[in-house]
Amino acid sequence: MNIEIPKKFKPVINNARQVALNTFRPISRKYDRAEHQRPKELDMVASVLDGFNEGDPANSAGASQTGKGKVQEDGGVKNGANMMTCLGALEFCYGDTGFLLAMPRQGLGNAAIAAVATDEQLERFKGKWAAMAITEPGAGSDSAAIRTTAKEDGDHYVLNGEKIYVTSGERADCVVVWASLDPKLGRAAIKSFVVEWGTPGMELARLEKKLGIRASDTAAITFNDCRVPKENLLGNPEVDTKGFGGVMETFDNTRPLVACFALGVAKASLERTRELLSEAIEYDYGKPVDNASAAEAELYRMEAEWEAAYWLAMKAAWMADNKQSNSVEASISKAKAGRVGNYVTLKCVELAGSIGYTEDELLEKWARDSKILDIFEGTQQIQKLIIARRVLGLTSKELK
């Protein structure tokens, strides 16, 4: 395994780091306190990112670019958009996770469109900011429990139901909605539909007040006889289990991405804690950890956990770029990074003492922000279940 970051990625990484430090960090506390107020500063950052993607689409960073890696004809491998996006997201979250989630045209819905849309759909939805709506009041981790329906009616599908915890649900131009063509058929009938704001029957029910990522709006949306054109269905309209597998492939691209969200906020916490403790600790990586102070040893352990999670995410992204099946690796990276992110940010608050628990430092905010990264895109428990099924060769019915 080549552990050197490709040179072509370094400008993106450096630019993202500068945005994190010079744009995100200075306004981070402001929008944490002013929940639901749209950070207008992000429009400029998003425009720059759009321009970069247009200028070099083969090696661009952004949710809309994921899922587009190809194996080269000479049999070589490709480091492409998935890895680039993961590395860029890590640096952005080093600044503020909520801002990345609130970035125009970089929502998880954009990643879903990039993963499964046809060429015609990619062109039609180009430039749109897409949120993704999966969770319902009675359906979280169990996708088969989705009760939002899509009934065929002429040239349209009629959607009815409610979606909750839709990241950027209010601000986005459109929402990728998971709905069932027939709830009796379970997962096989679940499809994803692009529903644009302004469509009659689509209404904002409320915005959630949250523990963390407060700069990002999180919406509840209702659909009452909402008519969506048939051409807005992503993927194959046929009802079969293979079709649902195609819908789920979105997560093979987005789970390593969310893993890097967690890695970014954990990295920020680690570095800040090292700075705060620098006068009390002389870092010496040459001595046995058993000879270090308790605080120093804890920092070494956290750094080791972070490094392990980082390379698991890079492997999953690399596989996606090379069109290799990475469902297990994507779940492993998400499970590991989500857990490490929570562990590191909370432990850093503890090590920093009273300073870490107050609003004088961003450590307490990073600890709050990190929790969601172990929950959305599949909880820790669900990732372990997916991994176990694949390792043991069992179906979802055989291992629940």
Rank of each mutant, 00 (worst) to 15 (best):
A266V: 09
R206Y: 11
A205S: 12
Q380E: 15
D252M: 10
K287M: 13
A46V: 05
P26V: 09
A63F: 13
L122R: 10
A388T: 14
S370D: 05
V194T: 04
L363Q: 07
S331I: 02
R339D: 05
K242W: 08
M103T: 09
W178D: 01
K40N: 13
R25H: 12
Y357I: 08
K184C: 02
V12N: 03
W366V: 12
V195K: 03
G67R: 02
F193M: 04
G245N: 07
L363C: 05
A259L: 03
V12G: 05
G127R: 03
I386M: 10
E350V: 13
K210H: 06
Q72S: 13
Q324N: 10
N53A: 14
S168K: 00
V48C: 00
I355A: 11
R17S: 10
A220T: 12
A133F: 04
N326Y: 05
G51Y: 01
F52K: 13
P104S: 07
M103G: 01
L363A: 06
Y357D: 08
L257V: 11
K230D: 10
A20P: 04
D74V: 05
E35C: 02
D252A: 15
F261T: 06
K40D: 15
T395N: 06
L385I: 08
L351T: 06
E123F: 04
L234W: 02
E298R: 15
G69S: 11
